[in-house]
Design a protein around this nucleic acid. Structure first.
Lengths: 258, 258
DNA sequence: GCATCTCTCGTACGCTGTACTGAAACTAGT
DNA sequence: ACTAGTTTCAGTACAGCGTACGAGAGATGC
């Protein structure tokens, strides 16, 4: 490939044998064979320990050694249950998405899509590390596909062309993730402030005082002074309503075109 | 720290002294003092080498040793130009965002916002590694703030309340990032197919055949059969128009409310 | 008892970011 | 020209990471 064409990292595009092995554990869970030494743990234990670590300390703190230590087990023992860290993360994501309380199939599209978005929103609040996974897509796990199926189902009978259904669900996903990201970031900063005796905010305000050039960023200054950046009331619902309005418009337009 | 409260990783929330040091290089670039040994490189060389590696091999391949090797220099030599990897990434992001061709200040809001989105879209195509940075927010660098300023400016005089301006620009950002992500992922898979003689696709299709349960995912099956997942024509423009329509609606509503 | 199978885990390798240290190279002051 | 001061360069080292390997432990089937 030409060196001028940007290439995403090969690491995230599994090579042939890998792509199957990576998902085998999820779609074809191994049943205990009865023979051989008894297992001290279950796969669920391992995934749960990983999730607990990621929930409290973030994804960077999730290492095989720490998961093993939390379970009182040698690091390499984990590899009996899980082929590697990548697959452990896939399993954690699947387990997390299985927690989603998805709307029923017969809900009106607007209620269904709103509930779909809100369920994700709450999930990301509970497991912010999902937003830290820097994969290109979510893994193709059962629970992730369940969620996708649910999202698509809300719109598939509205008369929208199939391609637009996919687009819109993608837009909703991106919106929820984006907003959850900044909300979590805000919470993290608030937390840092509490822990470090407001030195963090001192540093930050000195940044704004010393380096922020109001002449260069007049709009930001103006919005700041008008309180436009005070997001204590998260704008999730308002923005979501606006998004749903635009979906309504798309549906009306699709109906008119027929 | 309570184990029941999800905590984002402390690593991404710089401690007090850190938060200033991390941005100092960006807002207060050191001028050469003339004294002492001459530098073999410039800061620009280091940032450029890092960007080149990330462009071609992805963010995971970006290590201090590799950057140093590309410059024909010892690994530790980089630390005279850059305090650490985090700050190098900040600089790379700033440099990338400086490439944005932002719309002029006097453009009508719809043209301006569309151009703002498209500029980001093209940037992410050129530097997909930006989408791999798993930080909670982009760093507060000059070029990043320039871009934000531009986005906010397109809407600040439309009569929308300030808070909604911030919301909408956030929505546009999330949309562009989300769509760029899946586009890049698709390109990565196409590329993997080329390199590995279609074994990748063989594996993937065997996945669909062996594990995908059409009864569990009827909507996905239906959309698939209707070609709804064929995204060769990226739906950027269509989706963007839909988004802009919803912004128009919000503006009209804000006008009516006054 | 013995073969067979599975789980457990210490050791080790290569990779990472970077702290420390001292050598090398350059300028300024005398 | 020489010294003192300042800055860059880079080797070594350390802690941490994912994980390949292989020896041992414990269970089952014969």
């Amino acid at each position: 490939m030409s060196s001028t064409t940007p290439q995403p990292p090969a690491d995230d595009v599994p090579r042939p044998p890998e792509v199957v092995r990576r998902l085998a554990l999820l779609w074809d869970p191994p049943r205990p064979s009865g023979r051989g030494r008894r297992a001290r743990l279950t796969l669920e234990d391992v995934v749960g320990a990983g999730t607990a670590i990621a929930d409290t300390d973030g994804l960077d703190a999730l290492s095989m050694r720490k998961v093993a230590a939390r379970l009182g087990v040698g690091a390499m023992s984990l590899y009996t249950y899980v082929p590697g860290r990548t697959e452990l993360l896939d399993l954690m994501i699947d387990r997390a998405f299985a927690e989603l309380e998805l709307p029923p199939a017969d809900a009106p599209w607007r209620d269904g899509l709103a509930a779909y978005a809100r369920a994700h929103w709450e999930l990301f609040q509970r497991h912010p590390w999902i937003l830290q996974t820097n994969m290109w897509r979510l893994p193709l796990t059962p629970a992730v596909l369940d969620a996708q199926e649910c999202g698509l189902r809300t719109l598939v009978d509205t008369g929208l062309p199939e391609r637009q259904v996919v687009e819109i669900v993608g837009l909703v996903d991106a919106f929820v993730r984006g907003l959850a990201r900044s909300t979590v970031a805000e919470a993290a900063e608030k937390d840092a402030s509490g822990q470090s005796n407001d030195e963090y905010w001192t540093s930050m305000s000195s940044f704004w005082a010393d380096w922020f050039d109001p002449g260069r960023y007049p709009t930001m200054l103006r919005i700041w002074e008008a309180g436009g950046f005070d997001a204590e009331a998260t704008p999730f619902d308002a923005s979501m309503e606006r998004l749903l309005d635009s979906v309504q418009m798309a549906i009306d337009r699709a109906r008119d075109a027929r």
